[in-house]
Nucleic acid binder design. Structure first.
Length: 732
DNA sequence: AGCACGCCGACT
DNA sequence: GTCGGCGTGCTC
């Protein structure tokens, strides 16, 4: 027992990770009598304000901060501490992404306004005594009340189908006494046995493999690959059920979850309750509730966007990454990270399995599977009677569209037949707006963005020319700014608006809907439109890639890809893979109802390997070829690319610092610095952005190289900022 | 990342 | 004469 004097002079100090871009946690005094452990969420003074921070693990060689600067922790929140696995995860992500741990921690802390417990609510419990006069309404209330020990006022009234005044009357008569109730759960507890799907033999076998991985309680990654409609979701739901049975929490990552109501519905059907959702559209009140209940272990399953990786799970036992190939998993602002890869890391640190699911896996996951780093479970058959669509290439050289039009007669005929049968046709074109280029017929002037020199895209519905690179826009002019000639501007090439125009002209009696991300009315409107389509309120749907996501359109029996070659030749090393994935996903929209369905793919290069792979349905061949190609070129399939993003107030500053970094890189034999000349430039919020591409060796050397390079050419004080984007999924 | 301090233009 | 623009510097 230390003496009173000893206690008086024992200055206890702990490291606290504060939400600042600082490399090290700050030290804070622990007031006498305050209990903190690593992971405790505390309020600390920081300059003029109070912020929330996490008590961190003591590091070797304590820091040498001036003792006079030390300030004391203000408050320990009544909140379960962030567990050790999560703390290690935060450190790991910070180290890997070369970003300050404080900023990574901020992602874990940003959710609730307060970390104090939710207030208990007032409820009522039966006292056992009954009122002298019973009425029908009172009988119902008493009967319902007997089903649970305590009820909230409104909950009881609702369950009994009476108004709250009946309940209040019974309280007054002494039939109920007030009790304190814990805050209601964010979502109901999932029921493992609620709606178990009938799995066929192949599915049952796949599910069994995944269930065993969960039961093993150790780190393992399994790639679950199955064509659209093969029942991947139902299969991994069995693994989810197993984890729940073992009392574990489960995280299911989804890309752009705000739009995937169908996933929530399927989960609900399987488990009798929806999962807790976590994405940018969740209300602040609900965010707070979910964050809190995840920390308390009350929420068992979260379905969320990439940021849900940073929720304070206490007892995570499984992470599923659905549509693992989806580029939306990559965060490309502030801290750059790829949620699929971080999910694998989270599983590794937590010692539990990860499942990566996709119909069209990323190349790197395919490579990991074939090299046995990941397990590989494949589902070949479509579930029930859902037939795959018959896919045909439309050779645009042999079946060209009419002059000034973009739809081949072959596709027009198919659309007509489909609409005549009362079924739906989807036309897919991954290009927003009316036309990608506008030029002057008189002088040949091309409308370009003044900031990044990309072509300005004609958006007729908005009456604007827009730069898709940096957001620059201007009203559509009537005359050429170069030669002044009136009415000689001509739109070149198709966008979805132009295809919609072509459809309205060709099928004036059909109901045509245009869907793209710049649809007025935002996500809610989009959701409504998608519901309307599913309900059969449209005949022809024209959409950008957002229609490729998992919506159910039972009446859709024709999918036409308008310009399938688009994106194959844009210089992106991932172009072939992306095109393959997109065409596969979008044609998979057809035929989930069991009706005969088809996909027509308009292409000018039907001999291209991507087109051949799509048309033959031989995705195996596509992957083998892509991976083989890289091997022959002496390139690793992934894991060697990083970019340094330089942003500055002026173009010159950005370029100057780019040159400084390049000089600092020197002539490293193993690591090559490309760009920034080759890399795209964008102007975002008035700041010029460059990407300096770096190709390197294995993880450690690349990161060490980047660190050294930035240290040797630190951004000059002023407006220049540097961020690092380690990209495990790109190649160069 | 915030937030305060600090030094130069258009206004009650 | 002030209000206020955002440049730069600091936070245990």
């Amino acid at each position: 027992m230390p003496s009173a004097i000893g206690q008086l002079f024992a200055v206890r100090t702990v490291p606290v990770l504060v939400p600042l871009p600082t490399e090290q946690p700050y030290s804070y005094l622990v007031p006498d009598g305050m209990e903190v452990v690593p992971g405790s969420i505390v309020q600390v003074p920081l300059g003029p304000r109070q912020v929330a921070g996490i008590v961190w693990d003591a590091a070797e060689g304590g820091d040498s901060v001036d003792p006079k600067k030390l300030r004391a922790i203000t408050h320990v929140f009544d909140c379960p501490p962030i567990d050790a696995a999560m703390r290690r995860f935060i450190d790991w992500v910070a180290d890997y992404t070369l970003s300050p741990p404080g900023l990574v921690a901020r992602m874990a802390l940003r959710a609730p306004v307060a970390f104090d417990p939710e207030p208990w609510i007032e409820g009522f419990a039966s006292t056992g005594s009954l009122p002298e006069r019973m009425t029908g309404a009172r009988e119902r209330v008493m009967a319902v009340a007997a089903e649970a020990p305590a009820w909230s006022r409104s909950g009881l009234a609702h369950a009994a189908g009476v108004s709250v005044s009946v309940v209040e009357g019974l309280v007054k008569l002494g039939a109920f006494a007030p009790v304190r109730l814990p805050p209601p759960p964010a979502v109901a507890e999932p029921d493992l046995h609620f709606g178990r799907a009938d799995l066929n033999e192949e599915q049952a076998e796949a599910a069994q493999t995944l269930v065993q991985a969960v039961a093993a309680e150790s780190f393992a990654v399994t790639l679950l690959e199955g064509v659209t409609g093969s029942g991947k979701t139902e299969v991994y739901f069995e693994a989810v059920a197993k984890a729940l049975e073992m009392g574990k929490q489960v995280l299911i990552l989804l890309p752009e979850i705000a739009l995937t109501q169908s996933f929530i519905d399927r989960f609900h059907q399987r488990f009798g309750a929806p999962p807790a959702e976590w994405h940018s559209d969740v209300s602040p009140r609900m965010r707070e509730k979910v964050w809190r209940q995840v920390a308390e272990g009350r929420v068992k399953v979260v379905a969320g966007a990439r940021s849900s990786l940073f929720l304070p799970f206490q007892n995570l036992g499984l992470v599923v990454v659905d549509e693992e190939h989806d580029p939306a998993y990559k965060q490309e602002e502030r801290t750059f990270y790829h949620a699929r890869d971080m999910a694998v890391v989270r599983a590794s640190i937590g010692g539990f399995p990860a499942i990566l699911a996709s119909a069209t896996p990323s190349i790197e996951s395919r490579v990991n599977a074939s090299s046995q780093r990941y397990g590989h479970v494949q589902l070949a058959a479509r579930f029930r009677d859902a037939a795959l669509p018959t896919l045909t290439l439309v050779d645009m050289r042999r079946h060209p569209p009419a002059r000034g039009k973009f739809i081949s007669p072959v596709l027009l005929t198919a659309i007509n037949e489909t609409v005549q049968r009362g079924e739906q046709a989807l036309l897919f074109l991954n290009r927003r707006g009316y036309a990608p280029l506008t030029l002057c017929r008189s002088c040949g002037h091309r409308f370009q963005c003044p900031d990044c020199s990309a072509w300005l895209v004609d958006h007729r519905l908005r009456g604007q020319l827009q730069c898709h690179h940096c957001g620059f826009n201007r009203p559509r002019p009537d005359s050429c700014p170069e030669c002044g000639t009136l009415d000689h501007l001509v739109a070149c090439g198709p966008g979805v608006e132009r295809i919609a125009e072509e459809m309205l002209a060709a099928f004036p009696d059909a109901r045509t809907i245009l869907l793209s991300s710049d649809l007025a009315g935002g996500p809610r409107r989009l959701r409504r439109e998608l519901d309307a389509i599913a309900g059969g309120e449209a005949d022809i749907i024209i959409g950008t890639q957002l229609v490729a996501k998992g919506h159910h359109f039972p009446l859709m029996t024709l999918v036409g890809a308008v310009d399938a070659d688009l994106g194959l030749s844009n210089g992106d090393p991932r172009a072939a893979e992306r095109t393959f994935q997109l065409l596969h996903q979008v044609t998979g929209r057809a035929g989930r109802s069991g009706r005969a369905s088809r996909g027509l793919i308009q292409t000018y290069q039907p001999e291209h390997p991507v087109m051949q792979a799509i048309a033959s349905g031989a995705s195996e061949r596509f992957y083998d070829r892509e991976i083989g190609e890289r091997e022959r070129a002496g390139l690793p399939p992934f894991g060697r690319l990083a970019s340094i993003i330089i942003s500055a107030a002026t173009r010159k500053e950005a370029e100057d610092h780019g040159r400084a970094l390049r000089r600092a890189a020197g002539e490293d034999g193993e690591i090559e610095v490309l760009g920034p000349a080759e890399a795209p430039l964008a102007v975002l919020r008035g700041r010029y952005r460059f990407r300096l591409l770096c190709q390197g060796g294995r993880r450690a050397p690349l990161q060490a190289f980047l660190r050294a390079m930035i240290a040797a050419a630190p951004p000059p004080r002023g407006s220049v900022q540097v961020q690092v984007d380690i990209d495990p999924q790109s190649f160069l």
